[in-house]
Write a protein that binds this DNA or RNA. Structure first.
Lengths: 146, 146
DNA sequence: AGTAACAATGTGCGTGCGCACGCACTTTCC
DNA sequence: GGAAAGTGCGTGCGCACGCACATTGTTACT
């Protein structure tokens, strides 16, 4: 357990704490879109058929399944998502992104990406960015166990 | 704005979402100590005089100043911290770690470090760990501006 | 077929969290 | 010296979040 290991963890906590509110504000101010909404819309948009069940959404998105269900409620109220039941399993409920939702997502994307670059990746080299991505993805790949 | 940049950001969000609850649970189960308490105690313990004003605590710790004030309330109730007023500025209130608090912190430290290694750094190489720490610290050093 | 285990949701509830505000005190400026 | 602006703190409030549970539907087993 080296010292840089704890430094790597502490830095991750601090960067998260500092940047998430900043980027969320930026997105909300310029697009009226909370970060959570963006995340959910992005996952729905890139999913096969542009739809996902609540369970799938909870797994793939950053939010929990429970939270995803409520965020979808809000997105439905805003007209960005519609619920549609799965004829093959009536327990499950699909969330489908609407055209309006895709429109808003396309409008927000450049703002989001610019914020990421401005607050985050512009402060590191391309090589560092690659290493960070690779290392963190390995952590994720390890899964809940171990 | 390359693709690995967004990957580095997305991975950070996911790692945070996955690991923080896990480590918090571990710490709470084995030491009865929430992660927030640990963070605050750690900062207090390594501060000059083992004490910090609320404003300083809010800046140095991961939590906000407001939150820090409430966490200190809990820590006082638990006997790990005591409040002490600053004679030179009667507005401010110092939080001082008690001997009991230091004891609990020393007991929790190995558990915390082991959890970080187990869930986080054991999945990357030492070189990656160094790069991650260095890159994220540069992001932090950039500060709230820009 | 019938029933018992299992799975996918949605929701009540408690907790964590930060913002906006007011109070007490300090500093600055006249 | 006195008023006005500024600073540090604690707290009321509302939102975000996840857990535990109830509900509804599915599957497996006899």
């Amino acid at each position: 357990m080296s010292d840089t290991d704890t430094a790597a963890w502490a830095a991750l906590l601090r960067v998260h704490a500092a940047l998430v509110p900043r980027i969320d504000r930026e997105l909300q101010r310029r697009c009226g879109l909370p970060l959570t909404w963006y995340d959910v819309l992005l996952e729905l948009n890139s999913a096969p058929g542009r739809r996902l069940s609540m369970g799938e959404l909870g797994e793939v998105a950053v939010v929990s399944r429970t939270r995803a269900s409520r965020v979808v409620d809000q997105l439905v109220a805003a007209g960005f998502v519609s619920r549609s039941s799965n004829p093959e399993d009536k327990r499950s409920a699909y969330a489908v992104i609407t055209d309006e939702g895709r429109k808003v997502l396309r409008a927000a994307a450049p703002v989001y990406l610019a914020a990421i670059e401005r607050f985050y990746t512009s402060h590191m080299s391309a090589a560092e960015s690659r290493t960070v991505a690779a290392a963190l993805e390995k952590v994720l790949a390890a899964g809940p166990h171990t």
